[in-house]
Simulated assay, not measured.
Amino acid sequence: MSGSAVDELARQLRADYDAAPRGRQAASIHLFGIRHAQALRGVSKSAVAERAGLPKSYGTEINKGVQLSEYVAITKPLV
């Protein structure tokens, strides 16, 4: 995936995180992983988190969402 595509994912992650209600930021990261699972396959989730200005360790949370995407569907927006 190109650097610009990773940058776009990072921008979207940051926007989702910033828009999340207080106490729901972790859920927003999981939902991001679910919503963008296809685009995130083969991409360093830690790099996306870092480019979004979030801790590198949040890549683990993004990956949880990607893994959940095979089993769940988003039925209600977080905000």
Rank of each mutant, 00 (worst) to 15 (best):
F32N: 01
D16R: 12
R14K: 14
Y71G: 12
A15W: 00
A19Y: 04
A47D: 14
A37C: 06
G33A: 05
I29T: 12
Y17H: 13
I74Q: 06
S2Q: 11
M1A: 13
L9W: 04
S69R: 07
E70N: 12
H36F: 13
V6N: 02
D18I: 00
L78V: 02
I34T: 05
R35H: 08
E70K: 15
T75V: 15
A39D: 10
I29P: 03
S57F: 10
Y17P: 05
G53E: 10
R35S: 03
A39T: 11
L40H: 05
E50Q: 07
Y58E: 04
S4N: 13
D7W: 06
Q67D: 15
I34A: 04
D18Y: 03
E8L: 13
L68P: 01
N63W: 03
V48D: 06
R24E: 10
P55D: 08
L78C: 05
Y71P: 02
E8Q: 14
T60F: 11
A19D: 11
A19C: 02
T60L: 12
S57H: 09
A39G: 00
K45Y: 10
A19T: 02
L9A: 02
G33D: 06
E61T: 15
V79H: 11
S28N: 06
G42N: 01
R51E: 08
K76D: 11
I29M: 03
L31W: 00
E70S: 14
A37K: 07
E50F: 02
G65D: 07
D16F: 04
A39E: 14
D16T: 01
N63T: 05
L31R: 03
L40P: 04
H36G: 01
S28I: 02
R35N: 10
A49F: 08
R11M: 12
V79E: 15
Y71L: 14
L13T: 04
I62V: 11
A47C: 00
R24Y: 07
Q25T: 14
R41P: 00
N63K: 08
L9V: 03
K56G: 05
P55M: 01
A47N: 05
K64S: 09
A20H: 08
V43C: 03
P21L: 08
L78I: 05
Q38W: 01
T60M: 08
R11N: 07
A10T: 05
Q67A: 13
E8S: 15
Q25I: 02
Y58A: 03
Y58F: 14
V6K: 09
E8A: 15
L68C: 08
V66F: 11
R41M: 07
D18T: 07
K45I: 00
H36R: 15
A26V: 14
Y58Q: 13
L9Q: 03
H30Q: 10
V72R: 05
A47H: 10
R51F: 01
L13H: 10
A10C: 07
S46A: 14
H30V: 12
K64M: 12
M1N: 11
